[in-house]
């Protein structure tokens, strides 16, 4: 008991107060009130309660509810691609090649460039007639592709850009994971005659599980919350083909449907919680099972 009081004496509660106050006022409080405002017709000055109408509207209107599907496709595809591609790049960059410093820097730099800049640049690269990608495609004998104008393709073009930009963080996390693996495992395995592929599959892959879990969670949440890349490249179009939850929230806000926009915000919050928390729990379990 005495040591406890000494402890709380030394580590005063007041140290936490500034952070906690700012966090609660500007983050938590709006989230709590959003539950109420999402059930109102609202123009900031007055709010009229309307029950679940906004939610019904959100799910019945195809242009709105399709954004949920797009968000899920976007998040799972970007996350999956990053997990797989980054793994092989990390393996490549932890081998004995001499140019790894250069390659790592090149892969990493897009992460520091603003999403807006990357989005606008890729917009130009994906230009339907004169963009560089189509020039190359035509040069090797394919017909040009309307990357961002085709309803069925636009979302995947944005996803590809997202992977290009966000790959780096996954790569560096993997590299840290691979480098922390004890080298004696590989020595023992090669003495036993395991091939490089077997070593990769049976030693590296299971032992980078903690890094992999971080990457999955991080990129999935990032994908579910995505807004600026979509907004820079397509603005949700063509039609509603690339509208994700965050862009719908912005659009409804711009149209003045504040209640509906807030309902979208709450749905996004629920969606992320329903995916992220169980997934994290599952991945932790899996990590424990491996070790």
């Amino acid at each position: 008991m005495k040591s406890k009081s000494k402890k709380s004496n030394l580590y005063s509660f007041w140290f936490v107060v500034p952070s906690l106050a700012i966090f609660c006022i500007f983050f938590l409080y709006p989230i709590v009130t959003s539950l109420y405002y999402s059930m109102t017709v609202w123009n900031f000055d007055s709010a009229t309660f309307c029950g679940l109408d906004n939610y019904k509207m959100f799910f019945s209107e195809n242009s709105l509810s399709s954004s949920i599907v797009h968000t899920l496709i976007y998040a799972f595809l970007t996350s999956g691609l990053k997990v797989v591609i980054a793994f092989f790049i990390a393996i490549f960059l932890t081998s004995k090649i001499r140019t790894k410093g250069f390659i790592r820097s090149c892969v990493f730099f897009p992460n520091l460039v603003s999403t807006m800049a990357v989005g606008l640049t890729f917009c130009a690269l994906m230009h339907p007639t004169k963009g560089l990608f189509n020039v190359v495609l035509q040069a090797i004998g394919f017909s040009p592709i309307n990357f961002l104008g085709d309803i069925n393709l636009a979302l995947y073009s944005v996803i590809a850009t997202d992977v290009w930009k966000g790959l780096s963080i996954s790569v560096v996390i993997y590299i840290a994971g691979v480098q922390s693996i004890d080298k004696t495992y590989y020595e023992a395995a090669s003495i036993d005659g395991a091939s490089a592929w077997q070593q990769l599959k049976s030693i590296t892959l299971p032992l980078v599980a903690p890094s992999q879990n971080s990457i999955i969670i991080l990129s999935l949440i990032g994908g579910l919350r995505t807004f600026d890349l979509i907004w820079a490249m397509t603005g949700g179009g063509p039609g509603f083909a690339t509208d994700v939850m965050a862009s719908v929230i912005y659009k409804e806000y711009a149209y003045g449907f504040y209640g509906l926009s807030t309902a979208g915000n709450v749905i996004m919050l629920v969606l992320i919680s329903c995916i992220a928390f169980p997934l994290q729990h599952f991945l932790m379990k899996r990590e424990e099972a491996i070790q």
């Binding site: 509660f13 936490v16 952070s19 906690l20 966090f23 006022i25 500007f26 983050f27 938590l28 409080y29 709006p30 989230i31 009130t33 959003s34 405002y37 609202w42 900031f44 949440i221 919350r225 965050a246 929230i249 806000y253 504040y258 926009s261 807030t262 915000n265 709450v266 996004m268 919050l269 992320i272 919680s273 992220a276 928390f277």
Partner: peptide, 26 residues
């Protein structure tokens, strides 16, 4: 326990998105 709770609440912020319009209103 108090600190653990505070820590848990703050770490929620890593996952859940901000409520934008209520923040503007605030």
């Amino acid at each position: 326990r108090v600190m653990k709770t505070i820590s848990w609440v703050i770490m929620l912020g890593l996952m859940i998105p901000a409520a934008i319009l209520p923040t503007i209103n605030l």
